[in-house]
Design a protein around this nucleic acid. Structure first.
Lengths: 236, 236
DNA sequence: AAAATACATGTTGTATACAGATAGTTTTCG
DNA sequence: CGAAAACTATCTGTATACAACATGTATTTT
């Protein structure tokens, strides 16, 4: 895991974030201070500081005298998500096109390379983390302190929704993922060209695709079996 | 100060927030753990947890081994502010009109009453805090977890900008403030009617007025003295 | 037998003591 | 006299011990 250069605190924070994004820690799950402090060789004092920080970033919820748990995902938060995401994603990509440095563009290309690789050979977790990383970089490019807190919160739940819904189970879903990758390439091009309008349009396209993917999962093709036959035991 | 029902931790957090908003703690100013822990009867452990939380909310910056300081306001953050504020304020008021509960509307009316009072007899600090409270309530009405982190960050710096710029020094500035109060009334009406379009329009108007007020301060009327006379030593 | 209370256990919140780092000051040497 | 190095004082970061609270269990009471 190469946690050499980082402090135990940073390693813990990174581990928790990753675990939340990949649903390895599920929404609502309780965190055990004692266990984590032993696992990371930290006393409870710095551990609790990390909890506070991650709670501020939207990963955890703290309840007094009742410990920390992974922040919930209810139907309410899902609705909130779909309401706000298009606006914020659009703003971020527009600002990214306006402000990106060449160093950041290199980082974005690297992230996209990892994502492409994950699409070919990776697990759902790897795909999700790579995709999240790609968008995180666009957030850094936008570099707006008033936008990024909301954007990063959106990314957390986009990752968690993605972990649930972006498992390619049909040809259509696989097709969507490869299209997402192409859109990433187009986003890179627009940012590199400093084309704000194109970036904003691509944000919209990318978001629409993401929505379609989720809809495909929520509303799968209806089962198509002759009456009387039992589904699940076919000759294949 | 009636801090009875609250824990010392909450009292400390509230005090620090208020001090930051009113510029009693100026941007970049260092915070003294020892002094604060003595003043609030808290040991450094819970104190530092509060620091972490407020840093996450955008009030403070933490630098490892170098203590906490009030978050800075540079020309960069000001630019970021003006770029994002119109969009987020508009979204918040639109959602507020869609989702406000009657209890929240009562809170908003109460906040407006305090603001009106502060306009008549209050200090700049009281005006700023009352105005901030008004907009905080609209944020609660919108009730969108993905929007509120950015909105609250905007409110912090809007308050700090306001503390600098909203000191009525000309007739025009006083006129602007009373107009702001009328806009608050209109905002309440739009929210109560559930009129999203009107709320969004009012957000725009309110923002424009706020900008104008700031411009009045940044670009004051040019001094008008006859050539040769020394400004600053007039017969008054 | 059911409900309520008291108790025991584990977990969270806080204080204090100590270790590590930073910054300012003094000393030393060119 | 100036610059660099060493030292010292102060502040930050962490560990541990203790107190307060919550929860689950057993006992008592009706």
């Amino acid at each position: 895991m190469r946690d050499e250069g980082r402090s135990p605190k940073e390693a813990l924070a990174e581990h928790l974030k990753m675990s939340v994004l990949t649903l390895r820690l599920r929404p609502g799950e309780d965190l055990d201070e004692a266990q984590l402090s032993q696992a990371f060789g930290l006393s409870r004092t710095p551990l609790r500081e990390v909890f506070r920080q991650l709670a501020g970033e939207g990963y955890l919820d703290l309840r007094t005298h009742r410990g920390a748990r992974v922040s919930e995902m209810s139907h309410t938060t899902l609705r909130d998500f779909f309401l706000v995401a298009p606006m914020v994603y659009g703003a971020v990509l527009r600002l990214a096109a306006a402000n990106a440095t060449s160093d950041q563009i290199d980082q974005l290309k690297a992230a996209q390379e990892v994502f492409r690789q994950a699409l070919r050979t990776g697990s759902a977790e790897e795909r999700t983390l790579a995709n999240t990383r790609f968008h995180e970089v666009t957030g850094e490019m936008a570099g707006n302190v008033y936008l990024s807190p909301s954007f990063n919160r959106l990314l957390i739940d986009h990752a968690r929704i993605g972990m649930t819904f972006y498992r390619p189970q049909t040809v259509q879903m696989t097709e969507n993922l490869s299209q997402a990758s192409h859109q990433h390439d187009a986003i890179i091009a627009a940012i590199e060209a400093g084309d704000e309008a194109a970036a904003a349009q691509l944000a919209d396209d990318h978001w629409t695709l993401s929505r379609d993917q989720i809809e495909l999962f929520v509303m799968p093709e209806g089962l198509d079996f002759p009456l009387g036959q039992v589904p699940g035991k076919t000759s294949a």
